[in-house]
Simulated scan of single mutants.
Amino acid sequence: MVERVTVTDEALDLIKSLIEVHGDLMFHQSGGCCDGSSPMCYPRGEFRTGDSDVLLGEIGNTPFYMAKDQYEYWKHTQIIVDAINGRGGMFSLEGPEGKRFLTRSRVFTDEERAELAK
């Protein structure tokens, strides 16, 4: 099964450590001018989602949402959530950890696009 969002081992480790401190989490990527390539990590339910958001899937048992208008630009790609050294977004939970989440992507193959269309 093709997944619209996946996670690296480094990001999964960071998610697990944040869950230990903050409980259940959620991700949202807005594509705004600030931190546009950084998904924001919140305690689950703290960020309100609605009709203008798309649930892409889960990473580490954590839902990952993207703004619908941003999704239109990225729908042909698989989102890969990574964690790197550095400062995260000021509202994202990983900020004080010395690490930040980063969105990478790769274009779906023709076969993957066909499977997703089913």
Score class of each variant (00 low, 15 high):
54 V>W: 05
30 S>F: 10
22 H>M: 01
111 E>M: 00
20 E>L: 15
106 R>P: 06
85 N>T: 09
51 D>T: 10
2 V>Y: 00
89 G>V: 04
50 G>Q: 08
86 G>L: 02
89 G>P: 09
44 R>T: 05
77 T>H: 03
87 R>E: 11
84 I>A: 12
98 G>S: 12
51 D>C: 05
50 G>M: 08
55 L>I: 07
15 I>V: 15
85 N>L: 15
23 G>Q: 08
115 E>K: 06
79 I>L: 14
46 E>W: 12
95 G>E: 11
82 D>L: 04
118 K>T: 01
28 H>G: 03
73 Y>T: 11
39 P>H: 10
75 K>H: 15
20 E>H: 14
25 L>G: 11
90 M>V: 04
83 A>W: 02
81 V>L: 06
75 K>T: 10
22 H>P: 02
106 R>I: 10
7 V>N: 12
36 G>W: 14
41 C>W: 04
96 P>W: 05
33 C>Q: 09
76 H>L: 14
103 T>I: 10
71 Y>T: 07
2 V>G: 01
56 L>Y: 03
5 V>D: 07
12 L>W: 07
20 E>G: 14
66 M>R: 04
62 T>Q: 03
11 A>N: 03
5 V>C: 09
109 T>V: 02
88 G>H: 09
108 F>N: 00
9 D>N: 14
42 Y>C: 02
47 F>Q: 08
29 Q>G: 09
76 H>K: 15
27 F>G: 13
36 G>E: 13
112 E>W: 01
75 K>L: 08
72 E>P: 08
42 Y>T: 03
58 E>A: 10
68 K>I: 06
4 R>K: 11
104 R>A: 07
51 D>E: 09
117 A>H: 02
48 R>C: 08
65 Y>V: 02
14 L>T: 05
30 S>V: 06
99 K>G: 04
107 V>L: 14
109 T>R: 00
51 D>N: 09
41 C>L: 13
38 S>Y: 11
26 M>D: 10
48 R>N: 12
109 T>C: 00
63 P>G: 03
113 R>L: 04
48 R>Q: 14
65 Y>D: 03
19 I>D: 01
93 L>F: 14
10 E>L: 02
58 E>D: 10
81 V>M: 05
113 R>Y: 02
26 M>E: 13
70 Q>Y: 13
117 A>S: 04
97 E>Y: 00
32 G>W: 12
85 N>F: 10
112 E>I: 00
29 Q>V: 05
107 V>T: 06
113 R>C: 01
11 A>Q: 05
13 D>W: 03
96 P>N: 05
106 R>Q: 13
27 F>D: 08
14 L>W: 05
32 G>L: 11
72 E>F: 13
45 G>V: 04
22 H>S: 02
52 S>W: 02
46 E>N: 12
111 E>P: 00
91 F>W: 15
35 D>M: 07
49 T>H: 03
79 I>M: 15
78 Q>R: 15
102 L>R: 12
63 P>C: 04
95 G>V: 08
37 S>N: 12
10 E>I: 02
56 L>M: 05
100 R>H: 08
96 P>I: 06
102 L>V: 15
15 I>W: 04
10 E>G: 03
95 G>T: 07
35 D>C: 14
34 C>M: 11
104 R>F: 06
33 C>G: 10
23 G>D: 05
34 C>F: 13
21 V>A: 04
94 E>R: 09
66 M>N: 07
47 F>P: 06
18 L>W: 02
